[in-house]
Each structure stands twice: as C-alpha cells, then as structure tokens.
Design a binder for these strands. Structure first.
Lengths: 246, 246
DNA sequence: CACACTTATTGTCTCTTAGCAACTATCTTT
DNA sequence: AAAGATAGTTGCTAAGAGACAATAAGTGTG
C-alpha cells in the first residue's frame, strides 16, 4: 500500500492499546450427519470462563499467528478437534458487552460441514472432552450465547439446503444418489421425491459417475458418484419440493 | 450470567491488553437508487490512513459507547452521514494483517438500504466530503480493500433481489407498483414482465393499498401502496424471471 | 431358483407460473 | 373532444418441474 510521509508518521505513532478493543474470537458450528441425524460438535471447556460447560469450539484470534480470519477458523478447528480442510463458510458476527463476563466480546462465527466418513475429532488444547450433539436438541445448555448461535446456524443451514447443493460437503468423496438424497431429507426434515430429485441433480451437472465402481449390498448395487467441482456452490432456481412419501 | 468464585477471580485478573487484539471497525455499504441507478455512498477521509481518499463510511467500534455491533453500525452511519433508521443487514466480516497499514485489522461490513426520497446525508466527523457513487462503477479507486467489499455487496444485493422482496426498503413509505417494479429492474439489470410481477407481489401479500391516495401525472393516476410488515423479509420460492420487453 | 430388497428409469398427470399480447381504464394535455 | 400516456387487467400458451405410480434391473439370501 502506498503511503505518504505524513501517513508513515501517523502509522508509527499508532498504538492499538490506546483503544479499548473488544475481545475477538472465532467460534465454529461444525455439522455432520450420523445415523441420518444432523449433529454438531461441542467441546467441554477446561478453562474459565464457563469452565466445564459445553460450548461450541472456538478461540481467540491471534494476530501474530493468523494471517486472516479464515485461517484463524481453520487453525482453531484443527487445534480443538484435529479436523482439517472442511467446507467452511462465515455465518455471522456477534458482538456486544454482555455475552462474555470478561468484557465486550466479538465473535466471528463459521459453520463447517464435515463428511460423515472422516470423523475422528479429538479433544485438543483447552478442551477436556468433545461430543456430537443433536443439532436440534434444545435440552443441552451451552455456554455463553452458544444456544442462540447454534439455532441461527441450523436455520441458515436448512434454508440454504432448500436451494443449494450444500449437502455435497457432508458426503464422502464417493457416494450414491440415495445417500445424497438422504442428506437433503435429514436436514430438511421431510422426504423428497426420488425422480424429481434425480432430475434436478442431473440437470445441475454438479456430480459425475465414478466409472467401474459400485456400492454392493444384498440388493442391486448402487452407482457411485463424485462432485465435479467442490469449490463453487450450485444454486438451484427453485426451492426443493416436498413429497408425501415419508 | 452465573459465575463461580474461581471464575470471578479469573475474570478480575483478565486484561484485554495482555493480548494483541486486531483493530475492530465497522464499514457500511449504503445503497440507494437515484435516477434509476444503483448508488452507494462514499466519504472522503479527513484523517490518516488513506487521508483524502474516498472510502466506504466506517469507524472503530467503541466498547464504551456501543452496546453491540448493530448499534455501532447505526451510530457510525448517523455520525458520518446523518442518516437514521435504515434497513441494515450484516454482509460479512473481513480480517487480515494486510488490509490496514496500521495493524491486523478486522471489519464487520453492513449493507444498508435507504429509500430514495429520504436522502439528505451530510459529511460528518472525520469526513470532508461525501458523494453518491455509481455502485457498479469500477473506475473509482477506493481506500483499503473497499473496492472488493463494494463488489461483494453488489453481488449479494443482486442475488438477494432475485428471490426476496428486499427492494421494499429502497422505496419511500408510499409507492406505486411501477416504481416497485423499476427498482427490481434497476438492480437486476433486465426488465421484468408486468403481469407476472404483479401476480407475484399480490400473492406474496407483502403490500397493501393506501386507500384514497393516488399518484397523479399526465396520465392515469397510479394507486399507492405501502409495505405491510417492514420487519420480516419475504422470500419467494422462485427466482425472478426475465422478460424481453426491454 | 424364487424371493427380498434396493437401485434406477420411465411415464403421466397436474399445477404453477413465466412470458407474451391484447385490451380496458383514467388521467392530462392540446 | 381527440390524442397521448401510463396504469391496471385479462387471457392464452408453453415450459418446467413437482407428485405419484409403475416397472425394470441387478445383487445377495434361503
């Protein structure tokens, strides 16, 4: 960035501690699907505040360590759970003076989607235990305002699954069409018509057959598919329909 | 929030300045429509860094002053432009070590929609001048990464106008159906079929007639409408169609 | 080999609505 | 009173896709 001489002087004299900055953290809502149920990862806190309470995995942004917020989110995810390279997306940022007993606290919230085959999270730094929580289970009391955050995340996920191919990121590299459809059904909470679903997916051109490989069982084998492009999210022009077959 | 005695001790000993927090700011992308063109507000900076450059209106979050981020956004909007109580929505949060020459900087970006009749923004604190910039004008060099932010905001706006009733917030309290339609057309960049548009709006039940009032001109007077509920955003189940009448 | 089971495809009916066009209505202007 | 302009309505067609049903195909099991 080009800077004038007056600007350089200004910058040299600048000191962040002349301000009263908020505590800036990143929190993660990590989704996966286990046994056809939407689950989210929570960690038991080993340190104050809210010690020994369950909370969404999160941590403080370390300006010496993290080049940017996305990197911070990925670092924290790995530190606390061991999970690497998931799909992450920024959800929202919450900041107010009440949410943390220490001080004015700002948190950037991400939601992450993890394929249900690659799940081996382990409790990491400042976490005594982790577990998968039923995402729509409202009995579990989470620390801070994390119940609210989780609720928002579930709402956003559901709404986005109505008109995008987001569930691709909850699937393993190779999957069957039935599995693909089931992820939609699990998240949306209602069944989806098979033929309409397949037409929709076929015309979106987002997956391709894995030639020569099949999923075998005590029935007709299923073709395996894989995503063509995991970087760009596909948007449908209509919402997903509802079928009464459930 | 209930706190144990060990927790209280921990909180008392906590000091934000033991960390190296990022600079936390709020930036605003303020949209309106003038002469059937999408415009965004930019302010000329009166202070370093990027002094005398055009930038999106923004400011530092003041933890002594702002109860939460939304409040900070509204405060800053008012301070810099005089505009009050618009529609605001969080867009995204950007944070990295390069975007500001001073230090690691994090900014929460909002976009605001302002009715085209209530525009009387005035240059406020730390701003020498303000102007309306054509939102899709790529010639203007803005400070920091604000060109990128503006681009993101325009993309998000366009995409959301495809399937929501967002343009309501760009209209004055009372408006005609033709005006409503024109806002869609301006933002989307293509014309929309009149009858299809009206059917869509009618069935969404989001506006109601203002009885007894009309907009007069040198032609048949137009009925005036007003929004029924400005708090909840209406989502259509399909994207807006394209008409060739333009 | 019949059976159970699931995958995969095909067909049909219907509903929605975009897209187009034509028409009517009601004001001002000339 | 006619012309011009925009507002507002109506009707038709075709495309798209949801919803449902039926059937074929391919595996392991008893």
């Amino acid at each position: 960035m080009k800077t004038s001489s007056g600007e350089n002087e200004f910058i040299d004299n600048y000191n962040i501690h002349n301000y009263n900055p908020p505590l800036t953290t990143v929190d993660l809502v990590i989704f996966t699907i286990i046994d056809n149920k939407l689950k989210t990862l929570v960690a038991k806190r080993s340190e104050y505040p809210a010690k020994s309470k369950w909370a969404l995995p999160g941590g403080i942004i370390k300006t010496e360590l993290d080049d940017n917020i996305d990197a911070a989110a990925i670092r924290i995810l790995k530190e606390k759970t061991g999970v690497t390279s998931p799909y992450i997306e920024q959800l929202q940022t919450i900041g107010n003076k009440n949410r943390d007993p220490r001080c004015w606290s700002l948190t950037v919230i991400y939601f992450a989607l993890i394929p249900f085959d690659s799940i081996t999270p382990v409790a990491g730094r400042s976490v005594t235990d982790i577990k998968w929580l039923e995402a729509e289970d409202h009995n579990q009391q989470l620390a801070f305002d994390h119940n609210l955050i989780l609720e928002n995340a579930v709402t956003r996920l559901k709404s986005k699954v109505e008109y995008t191919a987001l569930p691709l990121h909850l699937l393993p590299k190779e999957f069957t069409l039935t599995e693909f459809q089931q992820v939609f059904e699990t998240i949306l909470g209602h069944s989806v018509d098979k033929s309409a679903f397949r037409r929709r997916i076929r015309e979106a051109k987002i997956i391709e057959e894995v030639k020569g490989k099949m999923r075998y069982g005590s029935n007709r084998p299923a073709k395996l598919f894989k995503a063509i492009d995991t970087d760009t999210l596909h948007y449908f022009s209509r919402n997903m329909g509802i079928s009464r077959n459930m």
